[in-house]
């Protein structure tokens, strides 16, 4: 409980944080929800009920965007996170050179989406890009246009982030470092070795860490924007479009209410995912 003399300083101390938070999170959130049910162009504002959502659900591009967003999230969860775990488990053994590998593999995580987009627009280019040159070395010579062929475009986009393993890697490494050594020693006494050791000791104990990585990955994939916007604008034939880009298009054409409805949908999906992932991985509870 607070001594009365402390009330004022505590209030003063909380004020800036509360003010910033209210202005840039609470109010925008309220605005977003309200305008989702309206027609709003910046000039005029008119309530239209569920019209925006009806229109959105009837638009096949929305379903394509939702489908792609699910696809990108799946790549994050089922490719990136497992690979990151694998690397993390390997490096946690502190094998020779682990610091160098950790640094190299982590670096892409600090590179911006805009820079990555430029890198991959060169890398995938069918005339002078590196990818086709590499494939030619293995006997697959072609001039395939990875980004602008509907059959490969979304894979090409996913390829830009599927191998950014750094985050999962270090979270896993940190979690392993906190596992008491005695656990392993006991298991070794019982005859467990090598990968079996990890299968039965490490992985179960990583539940919390993996759940966190899945969650963070999902959150950033739901909002995927930079790379797609800069590389393909969502094309060809909307095969790479994401929900965030779909919303941005609505914003560009001046339909702010519609854009807000899409924004609300993104937040709603985010919320559902957080809850279900937390449930699934029982996040917050420590491993037994």
């Amino acid at each position: 409980m607070i001594r009365s003399g402390m009330r004022l300083p505590i209030a003063l101390s909380l004020a800036p944080g509360v003010a910033l938070f209210a202005t840039f999170f609470v109010v925008p959130f309220a605005l977003l929800v309200t305008s989702s049910f309206s027609e709003w162009s910046g000039l005029e504002f008119r309530f239209t009920g569920l019209e925006n959502f009806q229109r959105m659900l009837a638009d096949f591009v929305f379903w394509r965007a939702a489908g792609n967003t699910v696809f990108y999230s799946a790549v994050g969860v089922f490719v990136q996170v497992p690979l990151g775990c694998l690397i993390g488990i390997i490096l946690a053994q502190k094998i020779r050179g682990w610091k160098v590998f950790r640094a190299i593999i982590f670096v892409p995580w600090v590179i911006s989406g805009a820079a990555f987009a430029l890198v991959f627009s060169m890398f995938y280019n069918p005339r002078f890009g590196l990818l086709n040159d590499i494939l030619a070395l293995f006997g697959f010579a072609s001039r395939h246009d990875w980004l602008f062929d509907t059959s490969t475009a979304r894979f090409a986009i996913a390829g830009t982030f599927a191998f950014v393993l750094g985050f999962t890697m270090i979270v896993v490494m940190a979690e392993i470092a906190s596992i008491p050594k005695e656990l392993y020693e006991a298991a070794e006494c019982d005859g467990a070795q090598g990968w079996r050791l990890h299968r039965y000791i490490t992985l179960p104990l990583l539940r919390n860490a993996i759940g966190t990585c899945v969650l963070i990955r999902l959150l950033s994939d739901i909002g995927l924007f930079d790379i797609v916007y800069i590389l393909t604008l969502g094309g060809p034939n909307d095969s790479t479009v994401t929900l965030a880009l779909y919303g941005y298009r609505a914003y560009l054409s001046g339909e702010w209410g519609f854009a807000s409805a899409i924004g609300s949908t993104i937040l709603l999906i985010g919320l559902v995912l957080i809850l279900s992932v937390s449930r699934l991985f029982r996040l917050g509870e420590r491993a037994q």
């Binding site: 602008f148 509907t150 604008l233 094309g235 060809p236 034939n237 095969s239 298009r249 560009l252």
Partner: peptide, 19 residues
């Protein structure tokens, strides 16, 4: 206004016979 964006999105798919 959004002609160029629409063209860039649809044209590759059209050329490849998807539309």
């Amino acid at each position: 206004g959004l002609f160029l964006e629409a063209w860039r999105n649809l044209w590759p798919a059209y050329v490849r016979g998807e539309l």
